[in-house]
Lab assay of single mutants.
Amino acid sequence: MKGKVVSYLAAKKYGFIQGDDGESYFLHFSELLDKKDEGKLVKGSMVHFDPTPTPKGLAAKAISLPLE
């Protein structure tokens, strides 16, 4: 699924993505496929991810940034 980063707290390594389906997904650095892309996780960045339901809500897994 595609989505847009709505927040990312680099110090805490987490944030949120708004998916194309309108839902909010929890984003964690550990799910970023290329850790070098962390600096690109800023508000408004477009990402691809696997939407995954968890006991705490919806989460983004296997997060990647589109090729530039």
Score class of each variant (00 low, 15 high):
Ile17Asn: 00
Asp20Lys: 06
Leu58Gly: 05
Lys12Val: 08
Leu58Asn: 08
Pro51Ser: 07
Lys43Gly: 07
Glu68Val: 12
Met1Cys: 08
Glu23Ser: 10
Lys4Met: 12
Lys13Glu: 03
Glu38Ser: 07
Ile63Arg: 00
Ser45Pro: 06
Asp20Glu: 13
Gly15Ile: 02
Tyr14Leu: 04
Phe16Trp: 13
Asp21Gly: 04
Ala62Gln: 11
Leu41Cys: 03
Lys12Ile: 06
Ser7Met: 15
Leu65Ser: 05
His48Ser: 12
Gly22Asn: 07
Pro66Phe: 15
Pro55His: 10
Asp21Asn: 08
Val5Glu: 02
Pro51Met: 06
Ser64Arg: 14
Ser30Phe: 09
Lys56Pro: 04
Tyr14Cys: 07
Pro66Glu: 14
Ile17Gln: 00
Gly39Ser: 14
Tyr8Met: 04
Gly57Ala: 03
Phe16Thr: 06
Glu23Asn: 15
Asp21Trp: 03
Ala10Phe: 14
Ser7Phe: 15
Val5Asp: 01
Val42Glu: 09
Val47Arg: 00
Ala11Gly: 11
Tyr8Trp: 07
Ser45Lys: 13
His28Asn: 06
Ser24Asp: 06
Phe49Val: 01
His28Leu: 07
Ala11Tyr: 11
Met46Gln: 10
Ala11His: 13
Leu67Trp: 11
Leu27Phe: 15
Phe49Arg: 01
Ser7Asp: 06
Gly57Ser: 03
Asp34Ala: 06
Glu68Met: 13
Gln18Lys: 13
Pro51Tyr: 07
Pro55Asp: 10
Lys56Gln: 11
Tyr25Gln: 00
Ile17Ser: 00
Lys2Thr: 14
Met46Val: 15
Tyr8Ile: 08
Asp37Cys: 10
Tyr14His: 05
Glu68Tyr: 13
Phe49Ile: 00
Ala62Lys: 15
Lys61Thr: 12
Ala59Cys: 11
Asp37Trp: 08
Ile63Ala: 04
Leu27Cys: 03
Gly44Arg: 03
Leu27Ser: 02
Pro53Asn: 13
Met46Pro: 11
Gly19Phe: 02
Ser24Phe: 15
Pro53Lys: 14
Ala62Arg: 15
Ile63Asp: 01
Lys4Asn: 07
Phe26Met: 05
Lys61Arg: 11
Glu31Gly: 06
Tyr8Asp: 02
Ser64Thr: 11
Val47Trp: 04
Ser45Arg: 15
Pro51Val: 09
Gly57Phe: 04
Gly22Leu: 05
Ala59Gly: 05
Ala10Leu: 08
Gln18Trp: 10
Phe49Asn: 00
Leu41Phe: 04
Val6Cys: 11
Asp21Ser: 04
Pro51Phe: 08
Leu9Met: 13
Gly3Asp: 00
Lys40Met: 08
His48Ile: 14
Phe29Ser: 07
Ala11Arg: 12
Leu33Lys: 12
Val6His: 07
Gly3Glu: 01
Leu67Lys: 14
Gly22Asp: 06
Leu58Pro: 09
Ile17Glu: 00
Asp20Cys: 12
Met46His: 11
Thr54Glu: 05
Glu23Gly: 07
Pro51Ile: 09
Tyr14Ile: 06
Pro55Phe: 09
Asp37Lys: 06
Val42Ser: 08
Leu32Gln: 00
Tyr25Ser: 00
Glu23Ala: 11
Ala60Ser: 03
Tyr25Thr: 01
Lys35Asp: 06
Gln18His: 10
Ser7Gln: 11
Met1Gln: 07
Pro66Gln: 14
Ser64Asp: 05
Met46Phe: 11
Gln18Pro: 01
Pro51Lys: 07
Leu32Lys: 00
Ser64Leu: 09
Ser45Gln: 15
Val5Ser: 00
Gly57Lys: 03
Leu41Ala: 02
Lys4Glu: 08
Asp20His: 09
Glu23Asp: 06
Gly19Trp: 03
Lys2Pro: 06
Ala60Thr: 00
Thr52Asp: 09
Ser7Cys: 13
Thr52Gln: 14
Gly22Pro: 00
Leu33Cys: 10
Ala11Gln: 11
Phe49Pro: 00
Leu65Met: 12
Met46Lys: 11
Tyr8Gly: 01
Asp50Tyr: 15
Ile63Phe: 01
Asp50Pro: 00
Val5Met: 04
Gly3Trp: 01
Gly19Lys: 00
Ala11Trp: 12
Leu58Ile: 05
Glu23Arg: 15
Leu58Val: 05
Ser7Arg: 12
Ala62Asp: 09
Lys4Thr: 13
Met46Gly: 06
Lys40Ile: 05
Gly15Arg: 00
Lys35Asn: 06
Leu33His: 05
Ser45Tyr: 07
Lys56Gly: 08
Gly3His: 01
Ala59Met: 14
Tyr14Gly: 03
Phe49Ser: 00
Ser45Gly: 08
Asp34Pro: 03
Gly57Pro: 03
Ile63His: 01
Ala60Ile: 01
Val6Thr: 12
Gly15Pro: 00
Tyr8Arg: 00
Asp34Ser: 08
Phe49Cys: 02
Glu38Leu: 07
Leu65Glu: 03
Gly19Gln: 00
Tyr25Ala: 00
Phe49Glu: 00
Lys2Asn: 09
Phe29His: 07
Lys40Trp: 07
Phe26Gly: 01
Gly57Thr: 03
